[in-house]
């Protein structure tokens, strides 16, 4: 356990250079542009006086390294600047909206893993059968659908044509439900903690379509890597040993093949996270989801630059943290990773 923590700490330190890189890039994106960043930050409606004011406020009249230090200083104090559209600090806006996006992202991932991993196993146990081809075909087609298009199609089919899903009005339809008291910020968990099954059902019904839209693209990479990794472990020496010693089919498939196949699957999750986090931007608007993605789109359209920049930085930090989680998961799955450190 101590060894585990030590290595976990090491990985955490290993993420620091990425973090520094991310901060530099977000800084460069806003301060070292062709054109005048002050005009950008002041927004399209600003006059000369307010542009000058913004320039002074942002310290844009200083040298670039000086500006960078100021930027770091502000970041260290949680200051991401002021949003033009909401008039609030960007930090406040983001923190307020983050749980909605995170909940959606996690449910989408659970959906993707829950469908793709069994599909991959199923295909691997019958390689080149019609089931294998069907799985492969299905996930390949799914991967060709743009997330935003899937989102619209699902709404059209399952709300407009066949009214199975509730109206896409965000996390809960507030005509029928009150939002649960904020404990974790995740409606599904908070409603359960309160024992409010009706609200839970309402939140679940709202989240299903957007989560499927987000998760569908991830099916292909996860299912394919699961299939490939399973095929490899099923053909491995240690599975042959397990068969030669008569272990049950179930034991061989789960303990001796699947667990060993999980390492590449866990590693591909990093890529999947990158995609799913990015795609929040594309679908939140369609479902009226009050998350950071929809916020960012509004900010982009109204040239609310501080908000866009804050959003990008936060997503990058989130992604780095998620990759750390992936790292720790792979350490849990494979003792060799744990010992090599």
């Amino acid at each position: 356990m101590i060894r585990f923590l030590r290595i976990a700490g090491k990985r955490l330190l290993g993420a620091v250079p990425s973090l520094i890189g991310v901060i530099i890039v977000t800084f460069l994106l806003s301060h070292a542009l062709p054109g005048d960043p002050a005009v950008l930050f002041a927004g399209p409606a600003a006059d000369a006086a307010s542009v000058a004011q913004v320039r002074a406020h942002l310290g844009l009249d200083h040298s670039l390294p000086q500006q960078f230090l100021t930027y770091i200083w502000q970041l260290a104090h949680g200051d991401l600047g002021q949003s033009l559209t909401t008039g609030q600090p960007v930090m406040t806006d983001l923190v307020q909206r983050l749980p909605a996006s995170l909940e959606l992202t996690l449910v989408a991932l659970i959906f993707a893993i829950g469908v793709a991993v069994p599909l991959g196993i199923w295909a691997a146990t019958r390689p080149n059968s019609w089931i294998d081809h069907l799985c492969r075909g299905t996930v390949t087609v799914a991967a060709a659908f743009p997330t935003f298009f899937i989102a619209l199609l699902l709404v059209y089919v399952f709300y407009f044509l066949i009214p199975l899903a509730p109206e896409p009005v965000g996390r809960l339809n507030d005509v029928y439900f009150d939002a649960p008291t904020t404990i974790t910020g995740f409606y599904l968990i908070d409603s359960l903690l309160e024992g409010d099954w009706q609200t839970f059902g309402g939140a679940l019904a709202q989240i299903i379509l957007p989560a499927i839209s987000l998760g569908l693209f991830a099916l292909a990479p996860i299912a394919r890597i699961t299939r490939a990794a399973m095929l490899q472990t099923l053909a491995s020496d240690h599975v042959r040993t397990a068969r030669a010693l008569g272990l049950s089919r179930h034991r061989i498939l789960i303990t001796y093949a699947l667990r060993n196949a999980m390492l590449p699957v866990v590693n591909v999750l990093g890529m999947v996270f990158s995609f799913v986090l990015g795609s929040n931007v594309l679908i939140e608007d369609v479902y009226g989801w009050p998350g950071v993605g929809a916020y960012a789109v509004k900010a982009v359209i109204s040239s609310d630059y501080a908000a866009v920049q804050g959003f990008i930085l936060m997503m990058a930090v989130l992604y780095i943290l998620l990759n750390l989680v992936v790292d720790l998961l792979s350490m849990m799955v494979d003792p060799r990773v744990r010992f090599e450190g």
Binding site: D237, T241, L245, R259, R336
Partner: peptide
């Protein structure tokens, strides 16, 4: 029962 060559890979490496 059966035993194999290269015993290291014949055993499950993560169990």
């Amino acid at each position: 029962a059966m035993i194999f060559q290269s015993p290291r890979t014949a055993l499950n490496p993560i169990r």
